[in-house]
Design a protein around this nucleic acid. Structure first.
Lengths: 353, 353
DNA sequence: GTGTTTCAGGTTACCGCTAACGAACTTTGC
DNA sequence: GCAAAGTTCGTTAGCGGTAACCTGAAACAC
């Protein structure tokens, strides 16, 4: 029995392959060994210009697409970076992704995104899936992970960069801002501007550790001035302008004495702004406002809401840089820590006139 | 020379592997063959409950993570679906992704996202990269692709679903809405409500084929009523409220006679709304407005801007369903076409009072 | 002319896993 | 009691590439 009796229908240009092409097909078509084809396609090793041209021509005319699965297995190099984030619809992670892509585009690495929906169990699953592809690095949001997740990451022996947050203990490298500090700075500024009756509006914080840390920093700094948060309002589900409106209405009905509203993100802060304006409340004279994230879309409103830029793009860029440089060997060691500065933007809603 | 002289430091629980674990490690630890371990881990074939338990225990205690690269090569099954979209920061693709994930979560498949930034060359690159992982299916936005891209897709012999748009010729399956029709319906409704002096504001449309088709449908339907678009205003770069404001200001300065503004997306439409309201213009009495996408955040404004829902989630769901069912064999054949209904939402800005 | 490099390319042995087959042992039927 | 049919598990041979080594011919030195 011959081993060569498979039906092989090679197709020129027409592009209707029955059986996926392999290196062998290209090697036959160009009359050299598979190894030489491999060398040409990866620009590695010594190949004469003549054969190189021959091989490239054959590969192109066949429409050969290399099989990275096989390549990765053989070379045990996988040029993927796992990026694990809680959500895409968040307005913050697309920015982080942009930063990551900017850097990885100049490297052989490619990001692969996994979304956890703020669920630790889901994070564990996604992480397991991702690690089973043996990526060159992992970037993941936050410092809080299940024990199993931490164990997997530690034993995976790949560069790990935890992003967004620097308040806590990292597995390996970290890039982010201190949310506790962001909360403190905002609190100090609010008090400095003369506001005293302060309300807080945000997500139910059991899931969102960064919002919680901001809140902790916030109340801590207020406490130091002898001030307490007067009232709080929480929501769950996604952020929206409408939610910001409703929450603002509710908290003000309950606590009409409030003179400042601190929101856990810009979307609900903007909703709050719209509500206050329509209720004929003077912003920032009667009530001041602040959000968080430094979202670009705040620029569109009649008043620029005070906020704090979370340096999202930079976080993405730095995280990707660490992975890229560690994976090409230009950066040695582990455990790098990059703490970026949250930049306060006073806008128009954090000053009494 | 023995082949077994590699330094192997097995680590229980502590998770500080020197050498990544393989099936063999688990097989040794549990005293069965690699094949049996493989069967247990994939829930396939006959394994007694006793050995199953033994193997699972060993795998867990070692912290074994299977190597999908090797598995995929051996079984020539790769449970990845390539999803290729123009942008993440768009507010529309996150919704599509949500739909895709909803469906794929109930299947063994996993989405992998690639972003093209509306560039055909980049699309070609990303596609090549993705196909070299031999995915089980490809979902990509739009019907317009480079010749090389089309050739790759055709010869890849995997299910391909082009999404968002149904106006044109598909490579294989399509799921989307007719943007031409969406434009037409909006035009008819605008005229029906009595508006006559109509302006258009949108992206430079050389890149964005769907915006172009909407515009074509729009002008076509207007023409049938003997009406022409009075003035147009274009922008490039990302959409933002601020841009919507500026553009609206400019077009109204140039053409103060306008009584309706049709925007190519909801973000700039909302910006326009804010501008008009602050300029003391009566909306929709003096000037009417409409956007496109059915974005949720429109609900937060004092007036609900008229828009047309693009069924983004459903598009994602249906596309994923086609891939999933074709890949598990429950759906036969190729070239499925699903045209969804764009739903007009009149809101408050498309009625003269 | 002989020995040493250099260059261009081929050979061989895996990478870690799974499909396909087959063997040993147990159960069932009569 | 023995053959037929399960059940459970092991063996073998790749999947499509690449690392590492090897070979033959040409180029160079002296």
């Amino acid at each position: 029995m011959s081993g060569d009796d498979k039906v092989i229908s090679i197709n020129k240009n027409t592009g209707t392959a029955k059986r996926p092409l392999t290196l062998k097909d290209v090697s036959i078509a160009s009359g050299v060994s598979e190894m030489t084809v491999s060398r040409v396609l990866r620009n590695r090793g010594d190949v004469s210009d003549a054969t190189r041209a021959k091989v490239l021509k054959a590969a192109k005319s066949l429409g050969y697409v290399p099989n990275k699965i096989a390549g990765a297995l053989a070379s045990s190099r996988v040029n993927l970076v796992a990026v694990i984030i809680p959500s895409l619809s968040n307005m913050v992670f697309p920015d982080v992704m942009t930063g990551i892509s900017e850097v990885l585009d100049d490297s052989p690495l490619q990001p692969v995104v996994g979304v956890t929906n703020y669920s630790p169990e889901r994070e564990e699953q996604v992480l397991f899936e991702m690690l089973s592809w043996r990526p060159s690095g992992v970037i993941l949001a936050g410092l809080e992970h299940s024990d199993a997740s931490v164990a997997m990451l530690k034993s995976a022996s790949v560069p790990v960069v935890e992003i967004m947050d620097t308040d806590g203990e990292a597995i390996d490298a970290v890039v982010g801002i201190s949310h506790r500090r962001a909360g403190r700075e905002m609190a100090r500024q609010i008090v400095k501007m003369g506001y005293r009756q302060i309300g807080f509006l945000g997500t139910k914080m059991s899931m969102d550790h960064r919002a919680r840390k901001r809140f902790e920093g916030f109340t801590e700094a207020l406490a130091r001035e002898g001030i307490e948060v007067v009232d709080q309002e929480f929501y769950d589900g996604g952020s929206s302008l409408a939610k910001g409106r409703e929450m603002s209405a509710r908290i003000l009905e309950r606590s009409p004495e409030l003179d400042f509203l601190y929101y856990s993100n810009d979307m609900i802060a903007a909703g709050g702004l719209l509500h206050l304006q329509e209720s004929g409340i003077d912003v920032p004279g009667q009530i001041g406002l602040a959000g968080f994230n430094g979202s670009e879309f705040l620029e569109g409103f009649s008043l620029q809401v005070a906020t704090m830029d979370a340096a999202r793009r930079d976080i993405g860029r730095e995280a990707a840089r660490i992975i890229a440089e560690r994976s090409d060997g230009s950066l040695q060691g582990t455990g790098q820590k990059i703490e970026l500065e949250p930049r306060l933007q006073m806008g128009d809603t954090l000053r009494r006139r």
